[in-house]
């Protein structure tokens, strides 16, 4: 359960990125957060990964106030979450296998589990034959599928996807969304940030619309991208 209560975020240059946000996301939900550039969507995600602390209000995940986490506990929070980004954020000097394995290594998984799970995850996203490829040897869609495999590998409770289709063509974008829906069916909460109207409309789940740092609309079912 993700709960934001009265959250405001002001950046150092006094730019108010979020203003009095109240939002609850239940376990197993698929929520699309939409809105124009500068609406505060990405800031919201960065609060959830504790890259940022709110200036005001509270951000809770599973009942834990994450602004109060000690520096040593932040990695533990991040291991509950899988993150997918528009720019993929893959480790360029590591192979596909190593990129995915890294997420397991940090939680201290044994080598046997890594050797068993990583090829399966890569298979799931359609990269079963690219274990030893480096990110620069993959297409845009391939990179994003690799990033999804990494986000999934440690079976996180929550997946945060920040414009995951932003750098992809329509076909690849569609594939990525299908993967996210499949992950959601298995019980993982998915928070998707996007400004792609076609994608949002095709998902028809909960849609939260933001503008100017505020939530302007929250459609709980069959949501559409409406500005």
């Amino acid at each position: 359960m993700i709960e934001l209560a009265n959250v405001s975020t002001v950046y150092e240059d006094n730019f108010m990125a979020l203003q009095g946000i109240n939002l609850q996301i239940k376990d197993g939900e698929f929520v699309s957060i939409v809105g124009p550039a500068g609406a505060g969507k990405s800031t919201l995600l960065r609060l959830l990964t504790r890259e940022l602390k709110p200036t005001d209000g509270s951000v809770m995940i599973d009942g834990v106030e994450i602004a109060k986490l000690s520096r040593a506990d932040i990695p533990l929070l991040r291991r509950k979450i899988g993150t997918i980004f528009q720019d993929f954020k893959l480790l360029p000097s590591r192979t596909a296998f190593e990129n995915v394995a890294f997420a397991l290594e940090v939680i201290g998984a044994p080598a046997s589990k890594i050797n068993e799970d990583v090829p399966k995850a890569l298979d799931l996203v359609g990269l079963g034959d690219k274990l030893n490829s480096f990110p620069h040897q993959l297409s845009g869609g391939g990179k994003q599928r690799l990033a999804i495999a990494r986000a999934l590998i440690h079976r996180p409770r929550i997946i945060l996807a920040d414009e995951p289709t932003g750098n992809l063509d329509i076909m690849n974008g569609h594939d990525v969304i299908q993967l996210l829906l499949k992950i959601n069916e298995l019980g993982t909460t998915v928070v998707l940030v996007t400004h792609n109207k076609d994608i949002v409309d095709s998902i028809s789940r909960r849609v939260v619309t933001m503008d100017g740092g505020q939530i302007v609309r929250d459609q709980l079912e069959n949501g559409r991208y409406i500005i």
């Binding site: 990964t49 890259e51 520096r71 040593a72 990695p75 533990l76 929070l77 991040r78 291991r79 979450i81 993150t83 954020k89 893959l90 480790l91 360029p92 000097s93 890294f102 997420a103 290594e105 940090v106 939680i107 990494r150 440690h154």
Partner: peptide, 16 residues
């Protein structure tokens, strides 16, 4: 720097 940022986001502890 980029790699370090990614490692942090995947939940790597500082020592790791």
């Amino acid at each position: 720097k980029h790699e370090i940022e990614i490692m942090r986001l995947v939940g790597g502890s500082n020592w790791y």
